[in-house]
């Protein structure tokens, strides 16, 4: 005798998938992306020096992710391919964070509704403007929903705590050193309170760099130098 198929309402199905994805993401450590006067700072709690959560997509576009490494690594590589193909077919200035964010959102939404398991990831796509007014921060969830933020954005298990700590702060008016220390404090307070510099991963999109590629990782030494205890 074969088992009769059970009816599951679409609401329940979506809720189960969302709960599943949220649980996976909540286990991971957080990433925070903050604008500063001359650029955008990406800051992650990440003890591994080689498995990055923060990466360069294109000249003025950076990427940050939390969740399952293999899943966001696939999405990161897809983003690099998208950006390089577009920049080669048209021009370097025709690669935009908005276009990339749309592609990510459609892919995440497609996987969320049609695949057997949603991506357990959250992403931030950030684009550096020619001036501060052109900076863009997009936060993407596991279901493909997009939110754009104006000053700073946090993802991962402790995102709400970090956002609460940074609430009301206009980081785009501060310099890198000040914003870095605000970010580190918010990350540390949301977790254990102690955060050695070797457990941090950081990178910037720097508006003051002359060439076209503006993404630069911050070394442990550079971070230690900036850090105020």
């Amino acid at each position: 005798m074969s088992q009769a198929p059970f009816y599951v309402s679409p609401e329940q199905l979506m809720k189960d998938r969302a709960d599943f994805a949220r649980k996976g993401i909540a286990r991971g450590r957080s990433v925070v992306v903050l604008r500063y006067a001359d650029g955008i700072l990406f800051l992650a709690e990440n003890p591994s020096p080689t498995l990055h959560k923060i990466a360069e997509i294109y000249d003025r576009i950076g990427f940050a992710a939390v969740g399952k490494y293999n899943e966001f690594e696939t999405l990161r590589q897809a983003g690099v391919r998208y950006a390089d193909l577009r920049g080669y077919s048209y021009h370097r200035t025709d690669v935009t964070a908005r276009g990339l964010t749309n592609a990510y959102a459609q892919t995440l939404a497609g996987v969320f509704t049609t695949e057997s398991k949603p991506f357990e990831v959250e992403l931030v796509v950030a684009e550096l403007g020619e001036t501060g007014a052109g900076d863009q921060l997009y936060r993407l969830s596991y279901d493909g929903s997009v939110i754009d933020e104006s000053e700073h954005v946090a993802i991962g298990g402790q995102a709400e705590a970090i956002t609460a700590t940074l609430a009301g702060l206009r980081t785009s008016e501060l310099d890198l050193r000040a914003v870095f220390n605000h970010g580190v404090r918010a990350l540390a307070e949301a977790t254990t309170g102690e955060l050695p510099t070797t457990d941090l991963e950081a990178a910037v999109l720097d508006r003051t760099v002359p060439g076209h590629r503006t993404f630069r990782r911050l070394s442990d030494a550079a971070m230690a130098e900036m850090r105020e205890t």
Binding site: T74, L75, Q77, A78, R81, Y82, A103, Y104, A105, Q106, T107, L108, A109, G110, T114
Partner: peptide
Amino acid sequence: MAGFPPAFLTS
């Protein structure tokens, strides 16, 4: 499905 073509994700 819109978004990235499959080759972008599987390459």
